[in-house]
Design a protein around this nucleic acid. Structure first.
Lengths: 215, 215
DNA sequence: TGATGTGAATCAGTTCACAGCT
DNA sequence: AGCTGTGAACTGATTCACATCA
């Protein structure tokens, strides 16, 4: 049912939603595709086309009602509910993820965490208690979890992904520096600062050496 | 000079390089586009086409020499040198970034850090001492820094980005939940777990409710 | 034989440009 | 007058398919 809408379009919607939330916070009531576009560095035509996949949310001659459009986008994306997440890997990175303040306000809650280190198992972070990763399948059988977060070393990341998938999870946020294999019906996103950096360095390479192009 | 090669192609190269490093570690000497592709979930034709922008690295009938191709890609991407990074924002997130072990092995070094909190200024993390963000421009004038990492709250992220850009930095890794404006010649990448999650939820929404499609 | 490298063909995404509504 | 919504045109990316070479 979804297959008709290009994935790139879906990918842009969260940015639109975020910009609209910002405008709403500023008290702005109406926005044109022009204005929203220049806020985000996107052409107005693209915004209009993207939105037109889902309905007619604007008023000709006026623009879009900020609050209304923000609400529509949240509903389209499924952000009008809470999503439960399980974290696997409670090392340095995992702890940072656990203490990240950005998830909760957007409706994403980490409800359980797993590790394999006996020192870490049993520890509590906020209201989350770290369980033995061996119990992952068992625990996920009882708890409704929607999303898995993988924050383990590369060497064990694939097996953790497999365990999550077998537990019925079909959205994974991967922080490990590998490209895991998942079945076609499972969504996977990589959060990989190193890949992002490496992609930029190509352009930096020739741009004039070590910083300072200043006269 | 670079403008002829599509950006999507550049974006894929780091993944190829990473997969090749893995194969090299396993002692594999030769790889076909077929094999590399199935490792990464990419078509063989795409890999061949991507590589063909930069040269002829393979041998017909054989495939690619793993070590050679890995080296070529690193050189193309500019990964055969060290890149210096400045971190702005040494809160929870910033500290996690400072202690992240994944940068160094890939040649990315955090050489200075800035914050505005008097409690944090002066503290040391590894061999990096936190400076007052007011001194950012001054410090970057003397130190050759290639990349800025933004890990500050949304409200001040744009002004931090501006300061970095004015200091001559033209690659920025942004962890703040905004879409900063930068001049066209500055590369910017967002690391935004929430946007990534939100993009996936669209597909999860209808997929059968709260986890467990199990019989 | 078995793989690459690549023009040609296809497919997908973006932008244009304008009719239509307020 | 001003801005949306959208088919049509265009631009860009992917895949095909085959000549080429080890």
């Amino acid at each position: 049912m979804h297959s008709n809408i290009p994935e790139v379009v879906i990918d842009r919607l969260p940015r639109y939603a975020r910009a609209l939330a910002l405008l709403e916070g500023r008290g702005q009531q109406v926005v044109s595709s022009q204005e929203l576009g220049s806020e985000l560095g996107v052409t107005p035509a693209q915004i209009r086309k993207d939105l037109s996949y889902f309905g007619r949310f604007g008023k000709q001659g006026r623009g879009y009602n900020v609050r209304r459009l923000a609400g529509e986008l949240k509903s389209i994306l499924g952000l009008d509910r809470e999503w439960m997440m399980a974290l696997v890997g409670v090392g340095n990175l995992g702890r940072a993820i656990l203490s990240y303040r950005g998830f909760a306000p957007e409706g994403f809650r980490i409800v359980c965490a797993f590790d394999c280190d006996p020192q870490t198992i049993g520890a509590s972070f906020g209201d989350v208690c770290v369980e033995d990763v061996e119990k992952l399948r068992l625990t996920l059988r009882d708890r409704p979890v929607d999303i898995g977060i993988v924050a383990v070393p590369a060497a064990v990341a694939q097996e953790v992904v497999d365990a999550l998938v077998e537990s019925g999870i079909n959205a994974i946020l991967n922080y490990a520096p590998i490209s895991p294999h998942v079945p076609a019906d499972v969504r996977l996103r990589d959060i990989e600062p190193v890949l992002a950096l490496q992609g930029m360095m190509y352009y930096l390479k020739e741009a004039g050496g070590s910083a300072k192009t200043t006269s």
